[in-house]
Structures are given as C-alpha cells and as structure tokens.
C-alpha cells in the first residue's frame, strides 16, 4: 500500500525493488545515438466507426535502414475492453503495455471494482511521463494510441498521447509513427469527402479504409511494412466495443484486399 492507503501496482513493485525509479532528466549530451541501436515500430492508426473503435498497425519494426522484424504486433490488448497501439521503441512500449495490463488487473483484484476509464487513461499518461528522461536522451521514445470501451458512458473512446504524457481525446481518428502523414491524409480525405463519414461506416467499410490507409503509408514510407502476401503477413486489425475486443482474422483482410485488387483491374489502363 502507498502512504495514502491506496494500493498502486508500480508503487508495490518499487517497494519490492523490482521497478527502478524513473531516471533523472538530463539534456541530451553529445550527438545523436549511433544509427541502428534502436528498434522502432512504425505506423499505427485508430478511428471511430459505427461499431466502436478500430485500431490497426503494420507489422514492420526497423532500426535505421534495417528491417528488424516483419511480424511485430503493435496493437496490444491491455484488458477485456482496452487496446493500445504503439509507435516508437518496442522495448519501452511493450514494457509499458505489460505494466498497464498488470496495473489494471491488480486494481480490479485488490479494490474489487474495475478501474474507471479516466483512471486507465491517466495510468498510461503517468508511464509516459516517467519515461521523459529517457525520451529526451533520444532513447525509448513511445507515442501510443489508446482506445477502450467505457461502460459508464456506454461508448468507445479514443485517445492519443504525446511523448510527455499529455492525453488528447479524439473525436474521429488518430495516427502515429513514421507513416502517419500518409495515414492522416487518407483518413482525413475519406472522412471529409468519402461516401460517408467514418462514424457512420460499418465494419466492412472501416476495415477496408484502414487497410487502404496502411497500404498508402507503405507506398510512401520505407519504414512501414506493406502486405507480404507471399509470407502471408497481414496488418493487425482489432476492434473494441461493448462486446469486448475482436481481432479480425486474416481471411477477412485477404477478402478486402482481393476486392480492392479486382476494382483496380477493372479500371482502364492509361
């Protein structure tokens, strides 16, 4: 228990000497880090549609010019109703996700009630703030997106964060990572000029839009992984709503891609 009497999971770990205190903040010294010493996870996106919040990410992790891994999971399930997508350094991000998952479970078990939506959003914010020292030195920068179903309001909510831990609730969509300029452009366009706004889209349309946005990012950004049909590596797409979290099976994604390919074939060649 903390001094205030409210048990808090990070405090418990610190008391047991398991979790180090956040390092003091120093201004960066010397030049940038040597190329290739940090693995980065790249493009993620999330938006609201008629059936909740959809969250998707490509599968590539890079380090400088190298592709380190092409099956990275950047959309992580924190609990039954919360999703977190990560862009930045997986070493830090995956640890943050683990910490969040354990914090929420610990709270639920010890307090005999679910942590509120506000509490969950703040918990991630605090982890990011503890990471500022590292981030300022150019190590372990993480820019996550967080989405969860809020039973109190019967509504799926979506937040993005900056490096320092400020959280911003989003009305329509959020994107992060190196491919995010392309993703933002595609989503913005679809939302404003598409056949209907994202909030009115059904699941099929939403999945298609997410895949197109990631595909566009892969075209424009070398660090974003395109679909590897040969190796059958597809983006990770998850949806959160009042029923919990659904991971879309590859078969559904393949179908969406095939329909898009068919459309492209039917267009006249210049």
């Amino acid at each position: 228990m903390t001094d205030s009497g409210v048990p808090d999971f990070p405090t418990l770990l610190r008391r047991n000497g398991i979790l180090p205190e956040p390092p003091p903040v120093h201004a960066p010294r010397g030049g940038p880090l040597p190329e290739g010493c940090q693995t980065m996870a790249t493009t993620i996106l999330a938006f609201k549609f008629a059936g909740g919040v959809l969250m998707a990410g490509d599968r590539r992790a890079t380090s400088g010019n190298l592709v380190i891994y092409d099956r990275a999971d950047k959309v992580l399930e924190i609990d039954r109703f919360s999703l977190m997508a990560i862009a930045g350094v997986p070493a830090t991000a995956w640890e943050m996700a683990r910490m969040l998952e354990h914090s929420f479970q610990f709270y639920r078990r010890s307090q005999l009630q679910e942590m509120s939506m506000e509490g969950k959003v703040r918990a991630l914010s605090k982890l990011l703030r503890d990471n500022i020292g590292m981030a300022l030195q150019g190590v372990g920068v993480v820019v996550p997106i967080f989405a969860a179903y809020d039973p109190a309001a019967d509504l799926s909510r979506l937040y993005f964060y900056d490096v320092m831990g400020a959280q911003f609730e989003v009305a329509d969509f959020a994107a992060s990572g190196s491919g995010s300029p392309s993703v933002r452009a595609v989503l913005q366009y679809a939302n404003a000029y598409g056949s209907r706004p994202m909030l009115k889209m059904n699941e099929e349309e939403a999945v298609l839009l997410a895949l197109r946005a990631l595909d566009t990012a892969a075209q424009n950004d070398t660090a974003t992984g395109a679909v590897d049909r040969h190796g059958r590596v597809y983006p990770l797409v998850k949806i959160v709503n009042s029923k919990g979290i659904t991971t879309l099976p590859d078969a559904v994604l393949i179908k969406a891609y095939q329909r898009d390919l068919q459309n492209a074939k039917n267009q006249p060649t210049p």
Binding site: F9, N16, I18, R109
Partner: peptide, 15 residues
C-alpha cells in the same frame, strides 16, 4: 491476507 496474496502473485506474474 487477501492483499498479501494479490501482491505476491501480482509481483511474481509481472517480473
């Protein structure tokens, strides 16, 4: 005792 159990199990599960 309940808290002890939750704390010990939670810390082990995390580390």
């Amino acid at each position: 005792l309940r808290m002890t159990g939750i704390e010990v199990a939670g810390a082990e599960g995390f580390t």
